[in-house]
Design a protein around this nucleic acid. Structure first.
Lengths: 193, 193
DNA sequence: CTCTTAACAGTACTCTAGTTCCGTTACCTT
DNA sequence: AAGGTAACGGAACTAGAGTACTGTTAAGAG
């Protein structure tokens, strides 16, 4: 593997073309030959380096993970969870990122490798935000023994659920509601492991 | 359309074969020609009546909807929500139904018709369980103005989230946790519209 | 019981996603 | 700056998913 120069340019333009195609025509119509043409790259190259749509999606996710967002510290659990919910909401509402996540989750149900990649991504994101809950535990806002990971997941769950089953990205009210629900339940000791 | 006899037998055996193939080899490897062969049915028939994998999935969902489960009435909101959570959990844990739902949600992200069918299914299910919350509202367990639909969705969300992002079906503890979280948040007035 | 016709089955065909092969480019080392 | 090689590009090829056509079966009406 040669990381620099041409190889990196090819990867970047293929991933960009794949993202465009995903937003415009959806996951079902994603054709590697089309992506190659749109990226100005040989069809053979795309098939050799990625091979399947699922692998390509996994690589798009890996590229996203390279640019992670910082977490907040507002001083209260509800404030931090609201910030987290709003970050998730903004991600899912973004035409490119929202479509990418929906497609990734779909691809993960059919391809184990994509599923592992996706799980790794979420584990990293959740681990990054877990300290919000730990600090709230130290402050006495939530009972001892609460699982920080479960609280963070509880914030994301309704937002993803809405995107995937209702079919539309969550709005600001839904994000605020998700954060409040998680904060209230955590304070009541629901997420004690 | 002739509803009885041969047509119904063909539909049943095709849907069964499609379900088998879905569980064994996954959504990605679902081939209509294979399904036809496995069902002991002409390939032409499958292509004529369904045409695409997404349409076939939508029909599988429609068949499922024909056998809906009754809702509970335990007398308390937490009891009813727990019953609902356990019903959802059992559905998602069932090898056939769990795989079917994961595949359906995946197909819905790529195909608008499947998405509509799926939304209709969930709307019906949620409407069936919403009275649990309305009755709790009458009893004074949750504040007036609470959206019953939102409470029911809040129960399902973490279970589906776990299935789709963690990759494994939820266990009984997760179901109980989801029910308690929704009940506590509802009582605190989080789901007032 | 007989006739009509909706729906099914088999075969031959098409068309394109995916593969193979080989020649070319350009990155990296010394 | 010059060679070695990893990676790219183009064209021809293959396989199998999906289609078109024709003949057959059986559900249902009278």
């Amino acid at each position: 593997m040669r990381p620099g120069g041409r190889t990196a340019r090819v990867r970047a333009s293929v991933l960009r073309a794949a993202g465009d195609a995903l937003v415009e025509r959806g996951l079902g119509a994603l054709d590697l030959a089309d992506v190659a043409r749109q990226a100005g790259v040989g069809k053979t190259t795309v098939y050799r380096r990625w091979g399947t749509v699922a692998v390509l999606m996994a690589d798009m996710l890996a590229e996203m993970a390279e640019h992670s967002a910082p977490r907040s510290d507002t001083g209260s659990l509800l404030g931090d969870l609201t910030a987290n919910a709003d970050l998730v909401r903004r991600t899912l509402c973004d035409p490119r990122q929202g479509a990418l996540f929906a497609a990734l989750i779909a691809a993960a149900t059919a391809d184990e490798r994509t599923a592992r990649e996706l799980r790794g991504f979420y584990d990293a994101r959740i681990a990054e935000w877990a300290p919000c809950v730990s600090r709230a535990m130290d402050r006495g806002e939530v009972p001892a023994g609460t699982s920080p990971q479960e609280v963070i997941r509880a914030v994301s769950a309704p937002l993803y659920y809405r995107l995937l089953t209702v079919g539309e990205p969550p709005d600001a009210a839904a994000a605020a509601q998700a954060a409040r629900a998680a904060a209230v339940a955590a304070a009541a000791g629901v997420y004690i492991r």
